[in-house]
């Protein structure tokens, strides 16, 4: 955390501007100093909160979900919303220990539901992708 704040401070100082309170450099600099101070304060006065980190199994699940969302972002344009979101939904349901027989129907139905509501009824564009010719 301290390292992060110092990095922020250095990048604030490296901004290409005059060091004048009215300019765009001074204010981030003040923030970075405050960040550094509060990180140091946390080292000196650690809070008595004890963190329970998730066990290995649950940590894997979190990592899997996060990766799935990441991949979703990359394939969204090519595959289109319905296909990529169905896969994501299926992965999430599996991670949350849904019954096997429910995963496929629920994930496909809910994604199509979202598509109809957001894209068709509300006019917010979601990429059609592979199914382009089919649903346009």
């Amino acid at each position: 955390m301290l390292i992060l704040s110092i990095a922020f401070c250095i990048s604030a100082l490296s901004l290409d501007a005059d060091f004048d309170p009215v300019n765009e450099k001074f204010y981030p600099f003040v923030l970075s100093v405050l960040l550094i101070l509060s990180s140091i304060a946390l080292f000196i006065f650690p809070s008595d909160h004890s963190t329970t980190w998730p066990n290995a199994r649950n940590l894997q699940k979190i990592a899997l979900t996060a990766t799935a969302i990441l991949i979703y972002g990359f394939v969204l344009q090519q595959l289109g919303f319905i296909i990529s979101a169905s896969i994501l939904m299926a992965i999430c349901m599996w991670v949350f220990e849904a019954k096997q027989k429910w995963i496929a129907p629920v994930s496909i139905a809910s994604t199509i539901g979202f598509y109809v509501v957001f894209d068709r009824l509300l006019g917010l564009n979601l990429p059609a992708g592979l199914l382009n010719t089919l649903i346009q």
Partner: peptide, 15 residues
């Protein structure tokens, strides 16, 4: 059930 609710929240968020 949770296994339907939490995935739905995830999908709603990304949408």
């Amino acid at each position: 059930p949770r296994w339907i609710l939490m995935p739905l929240i995830a999908i709603l968020s990304i949408v």
